[in-house]
C-alpha cells in the first residue's frame, strides 16, 4: 500500500499547495475592493464570486493554478486556443476545472499533448475540450467545471461549480 499512501500524501500536499495559491488569490481580490463582483444567480448555495486571473495571465494550453471556491479546492484555468464547451472570453476558449479527481480525491495532472486530466490513483481521464467529460474512469461524474465570467478588464471570475467537489458535502464549506 506504499504507493497508495503516497498518493494520499500527495493529495494532502496538493490541498496545501492549493491553500497557498488561493491565499495569493484572496489578496488580489482584496485589492479589487469596490469593484462589482459577479455572483451566481439564485441557487442551492451561495457561491462566492472570486477573481481567478486575468486573460493576460493565460497562455494557450498551459494550465494556470487557481483555487475555487476556497483555498482548499485546487483547480486550473486553461486557454484552449479554440472555442470549447463552457468556454468564456473573447475566443470562447477559457475554461476552468477542479483538479481533484471526483472518484477518490487524488490530484489530477494535465497532459498538454492530448489536453486531458489524468488521475494516477485509478487511471481516470477527463477531456478538457469536452466540458471535463470522463473519457474513461471510475468517477461517477464528469470533472467539475467552473462557471466563469470575464469582465471588461479581462479579469476572469468564477461564480459557481457544476458538480459536487470531492471531499465535501457542500461545495461552499461552513
Amino acid at each position: 500500500m506504499k504507493r497508495c499512501r503516497l498518493m494520499v500524501e500527495v493529495g494532502r500536499r496538493q490541498f496545501l499547495r492549493g491553500t497557498a495559491v488561493t491565499a495569493a488569490g484572496a489578496a488580489a481580490v482584496a485589492t479589487m475592493a469596490g469593484a462589482a463582483k459577479p455572483t451566481r444567480a439564485a441557487g442551492a448555495i451561495a457561491y462566492p464570486g472570486k477573481k481567478l486571473a486575468n486573460i493576460r495571465d493565460l497562455q494557450v494550453n498551459v494550465p494556470f493554478d487557481v483555487a475555487y471556491p476556497d483555498d482548499d479546492a485546487p483547480g486550473v484555468l486553461l486557454k484552449m486556443g479554440h472555442a470549447v464547451d463552457g468556454g468564456v472570453g473573447p475566443d470562447g476558449d477559457i475554461v476552468g476545472f477542479s483538479t481533484i479527481c471526483p472518484h477518490k480525491g487524488f490530484p489530477l495532472h494535465y497532459v498538454a499533448e492530448d489536453r486531458t486530466f489524468n488521475c494516477p490513483g485509478h487511471y481516470s481521464r477527463f477531456d478538457a475540450e469536452k466540458g471535463g467529460l470522463q473519457i474513461w474512469g471510475q468517477a461517477t461524474m464528469n470533472l467539475p467545471q467552473y462557471e466563469l465570467h470575464v469582465d471588461e478588464n479581462g479579469d476572469i471570475w468564477a461564480t459557481g461549480v457544476d458538480e459536487l467537489l470531492y471531499g465535501r458535502l457542500s461545495n461552499v464549506l461552513g
Binding site: 497508495c4 498518493m7 494520499v8 493529495g11 494532502r12 490541498f15 482548499d72 479546492a73 481533484i100 471526483p102 477518490k104 480525491g105 487524488f106 490530484p107 490513483g121 468517477a139 461517477t140 461524474m141 458538480e163 459536487l164 470531492y166 471531499g167 465535501r168 458535502l169 464549506l173 461552513g174
Partner: peptide
C-alpha cells in the same frame, strides 16, 4: 468535522450518484 475539506480516500464523503 464536515465543515473541512476531507482528504483523498476519505470514508467521510459520498458522491451525488450514491
Amino acid at each position: 468535522d464536515l465543515s473541512k475539506q476531507q482528504p483523498a480516500d476519505s470514508p467521510a464523503w459520498y458522491a451525488p450518484s450514491m
